[in-house]
Design a protein around this nucleic acid. Sequence first.
DNA 1: TTTATATTTCGTATTTTTGCGAAATACAAA
DNA 2: TTTGTATTTCGCAAAAATACGAAATATAAA
Lengths: 105, 105
Amino acid sequence: MKTDKQELEFTEMARFAKAMSHPIRLQILNLLSKSDCCYTGDITDELPIARSTLSQHFKELKAAGLIQGEYNPPKIKYCLQSDNWEKAKKLFTEFFENSNKSSCC
Amino acid sequence: MKTDKQELEFTEMARFAKAMSHPIRLQILNLLSKSDCCYTGDITDELPIARSTLSQHFKELKAAGLIQGEYNPPKIKYCLQSDNWEKAKKLFTEFFENSNKSSCC
DNA sequence: TTTATATTTCGTATTTTTGCGAAATACAAA
DNA sequence: TTTGTATTTCGCAAAAATACGAAATATAAA
């Protein structure tokens, strides 16, 4: 029952999951998803983490396609990348929804 | 707006996400969630991966609390760990559901 | 007790992740 | 042009993830 399509989906979903596998990155995504767009600095003030480290987390979220940045000198406005965000939402939601409640253990 | 409770939730969710951050582990979870319980061997035959490596992936899923094993000599029957599976489902679903559709970029 | 089967643990190597401070970059304002 | 602000890149180190084959473990069956 393992189709190529499904295999690609798992690969993409794993990529999203990896991006979400760090508390700080989840906080960032949560902040971006709940409020409007925000600046990196806004988050730096709330987290006990070096700016360079935070920048790396942004970079990873960007590499995974979950966020995007808009240069608004001298700041950068980060937002969710809607398309991929919706894609991730769909992948995770369906992944959990399709689960069978029947357990044999 | 960052509560301790929410911080703990992000930590736990990150743990689940990390467990789900590998295509093979997603395939395992998918198999366990869709069909009834299965044996490790069932999956080994379908994946191009050494048995010892697969065993490690099972170990990680177990460590994250997403699956559990029942010894049924000489095989092991792996199943989802319902409580944590539901917890993960809830965390991810709410995480994506709470997102604001409004984007500013 | 020996043999066969299923799975895990061990040892090892390679790659990736995480984190930091210092330096570099980019741009606006003085 | 110099200064200030926001952010990234660099260089480094430590830890964790990934993968494999060989050896070990556990149990049922012969």
